[in-house]
Design a protein around this nucleic acid. Sequence first.
DNA 1: CGGTTAAGTCATCCAGGGATTACATCAGTT
DNA 2: AACTGATGTAATCCCTGGATGACTTAACCG
Lengths: 179, 179
Amino acid sequence: MRRRDSAATKQLLLDAARRRFATDGYAATFIRDIATDAGVNVALIARYFGNKEGLFRACLAGSADELERSVAEDVTLEQLAAVMARHLTDARNGQYQTRIMMLLRSSGDPRAEEIRIGTLHSFAERLAALSGAPVLDAQFVLAATLGLTILRSAGVTPLADADQDELTPRLQRLITAML
Amino acid sequence: MRRRDSAATKQLLLDAARRRFATDGYAATFIRDIATDAGVNVALIARYFGNKEGLFRACLAGSADELERSVAEDVTLEQLAAVMARHLTDARNGQYQTRIMMLLRSSGDPRAEEIRIGTLHSFAERLAALSGAPVLDAQFVLAATLGLTILRSAGVTPLADADQDELTPRLQRLITAML
DNA sequence: CGGTTAAGTCATCCAGGGATTACATCAGTT
DNA sequence: AACTGATGTAATCCCTGGATGACTTAACCG
């Protein structure tokens, strides 16, 4: 039997689930696969998260928190392009891309939907506050970020192969124009 | 029994399917719902499109064609912002938004994936050709478009409520900065 | 140690939904 | 009118995958 450590097990499940949900979407990911990825028994999903939906919500909430924190570490408008480029290209298993993709995945559950939309909102507001620009303008920058993440994760070249040095100046141009 | 007109029936199925696929994604849409929406018997999906996957491919291919044509009608770089804003706000049942969302939906089928990626590529290349800018730059504009469509279809305000007059100048700024 | 509880496992159930098939009906042909 | 092929309908199959609950084992504590 497995070594017993509920906290670690939960984390394994969350990590595996996020990867699956982010890449395949809610309906197309199966809890058995998540459990297998995590090296854990399926029934533990029920124990720790109630059901598939609960696991999804937990993943989403975690992703939302983490992303919000990543902008909360007071970034200046000048650094913004570089920070965004770093997150887009972040190599460590694409943590940020996974988190962002989670924000774009819907499970149909209203509670999860609230988190999604709320987080997207709050992001744009943060950008707006940072720059003094209207929220609508900030949402253009947010839109671009989401689109870039999607295109990269879809493997659309040359974007998918672009590194930080190529992305930063372009993001800079975008931000300067919009904010 | 229904009036017999295979072409019309196919079209009804395609329209209904595209709406469902675009809003719910591949795995979360059920062919029974599509058939009900179309006012058609489920088994006709098998008859006309082989299976669910075939129906999806047909929807995707149609959407891709239509979108490519919509840019092929030689738009000038000056008109681009206005055209994009028109498509984003297009009222007639959100045809364009539906088409664009189809491009972002994956069924897991490699053949469909090829169409998706190919279309995304070709779009960026067209933009690049139109402006003389590098493809990478054009992909930023494409990314923004995709992101805007997603945020609007998710109902993220104020973007979701913005009209053509608000979108056009902002798109203009974006395009000028990137292309 | 033995008991208690939390952590993990196993077997099974059951609904949902994609696919298939046999059948019915219509339209055009001779 | 009977024949034929295309179109539409109804019923059913059957597998997948989420959920459940009884059981087993590990850890901790007196």
